[in-house]
Simulated assay, not measured.
Amino acid sequence: MVEVRLRVNGVDELLDLPPQVSLLDALRDRLGLTGTKKGCDQGACGACTVLADGERINSCLALAVQYTGREITTIEGVDDPLQRAFVRNDGFQCGYCTSGQICSAIGMLAEHAEGAPSAVTEHLAGPGELTDAEIRERMSGNLCRCGAYNGIVQAIQEVAR
């Protein structure tokens, strides 16, 4: 067992875990934060996206022990205009991917504001206009089986303005 200290949604947590426990499983099974979803458990779908010190990560690929001392934000700790924009723009259907989509969008907007390049804007020196193509590329790690992509893009555009 390994002692893992996390700050999750503003609350200090101390967990005794086997070293191979993923951050996703620690959040869901040990802390009862089930808003973060287990989709593919292989880092391909983005349903498990959370924020670690403000950066988006796939929690299914992260060992909890790797994040000792870090600030983890799950959907339960999010109060962001994106949530309301997703509702207004029908950015979800079944809702399974929504928590990961919202956490990813928060991280993506921060990356864009900091001027982090993407495949669409690698030629730019700083943050440019956030186009639909840019949003789609930056959010490509989050899949929606229902196909609510147009509403997701509209919600992100609304908040980015």
Results as ranks from 00 to 15, higher is better:
residue 99 S to D: 07
residue 94 C to R: 12
residue 70 R to T: 13
residue 90 D to E: 15
residue 66 Q to W: 13
residue 63 L to P: 09
residue 126 G to M: 13
residue 75 I to F: 02
residue 40 C to M: 02
residue 44 A to S: 14
residue 56 R to Q: 13
residue 68 T to E: 09
residue 103 C to K: 04
residue 131 T to R: 09
residue 120 V to N: 12
residue 120 V to C: 09
residue 68 T to S: 12
residue 115 G to R: 05
residue 58 N to Q: 12
residue 72 I to F: 03
residue 77 G to V: 05
residue 109 L to F: 08
residue 111 E to Q: 15
residue 41 D to C: 11
residue 41 D to V: 06
residue 65 V to S: 01
residue 57 I to G: 06
residue 71 E to V: 09
residue 88 R to V: 15
residue 110 A to C: 10
residue 63 L to E: 07
residue 83 Q to I: 13
residue 95 G to A: 12
residue 34 T to S: 14
residue 76 E to K: 01
residue 68 T to V: 09
residue 85 A to R: 02
residue 81 P to I: 04
residue 101 Q to G: 10
residue 74 T to C: 07
residue 129 E to F: 14
residue 61 L to E: 05
residue 102 I to N: 06
residue 91 G to T: 05
residue 93 Q to R: 03
residue 114 E to W: 14
residue 84 R to G: 14
residue 96 Y to N: 05
residue 55 E to Q: 03
residue 89 N to I: 14
residue 105 A to E: 01
residue 103 C to G: 00
residue 59 S to P: 03
residue 128 G to T: 05
residue 85 A to K: 01
residue 41 D to E: 07
residue 34 T to Y: 07
residue 37 K to N: 11
residue 69 G to V: 03
residue 122 E to T: 13
residue 97 C to P: 02
residue 69 G to Y: 12
residue 44 A to K: 09
residue 111 E to V: 13
residue 90 D to C: 15
residue 40 C to K: 00
residue 65 V to N: 08
residue 75 I to N: 03
residue 66 Q to M: 14
residue 49 T to L: 03
residue 105 A to V: 00
residue 67 Y to Q: 15
residue 126 G to F: 12
residue 56 R to V: 13
residue 85 A to W: 03
residue 84 R to I: 10
residue 70 R to V: 15
residue 44 A to W: 06
residue 93 Q to A: 04
residue 60 C to G: 00
residue 113 A to R: 14
residue 67 Y to V: 13
residue 125 A to R: 14
residue 62 A to D: 07
residue 100 G to E: 02
residue 116 A to N: 11
residue 107 G to A: 04
residue 113 A to E: 14
residue 81 P to Y: 11
residue 103 C to W: 09
residue 112 H to L: 07
residue 88 R to E: 13
residue 48 C to E: 07
residue 102 I to V: 06
residue 119 A to W: 09
residue 71 E to C: 05
residue 84 R to C: 11
residue 74 T to M: 07
residue 66 Q to F: 15
